[in-house]
Computed example of a mutant assay.
Amino acid sequence: METYTAMRQFADSWGLVFLFVVFVGVVLFLFRPGAKAAAERAAQIPLKED
């Protein structure tokens, strides 16, 4: 079996599952309790005076 074919089959199956799991993890991380306050603090960093 060629390397390209093997990599293509892996990407079509487990690669897609992995990317979907990462996507769901990022979405859950962003919508966790307390994320809004942390995002608001981070958004104010460029506006702080030294």
Rank of each mutant, 00 (worst) to 15 (best):
E2V: 02
E2M: 11
E2D: 15
Y4A: 15
T5P: 00
T5Y: 08
T5G: 08
T5V: 14
M7N: 13
M7Q: 14
R8V: 08
Q9P: 00
Q9I: 09
Q9S: 14
F10M: 08
F10S: 04
F10H: 10
F10E: 13
F10N: 07
A11N: 08
D12F: 07
D12V: 01
D12C: 05
S13C: 03
S13K: 09
W14S: 13
G15W: 01
L16G: 15
L16M: 13
V17L: 11
F18M: 13
F18T: 12
L19C: 10
F20Q: 03
F20H: 03
V21T: 08
V21L: 14
V22F: 01
F23V: 11
F23M: 11
F23Y: 07
F23T: 12
V24W: 02
V24M: 11
V24D: 01
V24C: 06
G25Q: 04
G25N: 04
V26D: 02
V26H: 06
V26W: 03
V27A: 10
V27S: 04
V27E: 04
L28Q: 02
F29W: 14
F29A: 08
F29N: 09
L30I: 07
F31C: 07
F31E: 07
F31K: 05
R32E: 04
P33E: 13
P33T: 06
P33G: 09
P33R: 11
P33W: 01
G34W: 02
G34A: 05
A35W: 02
A35H: 00
K36P: 00
K36N: 07
K36C: 02
K36L: 13
K36G: 11
A37H: 05
A37K: 10
A37E: 15
A38W: 08
A38T: 12
A38Q: 11
A39W: 13
E40Q: 14
E40D: 12
E40F: 08
R41S: 09
R41M: 07
A42D: 07
A42K: 10
A43V: 10
A43P: 00
A43Q: 10
A43T: 03
A43Y: 05
Q44F: 02
Q44M: 13
Q44N: 14
I45L: 15
I45N: 05
P46N: 07
L47R: 11
L47M: 09
L47I: 06
K48P: 00
K48W: 12
E49T: 13
E49S: 14
E49N: 13
D50S: 09
D50P: 01
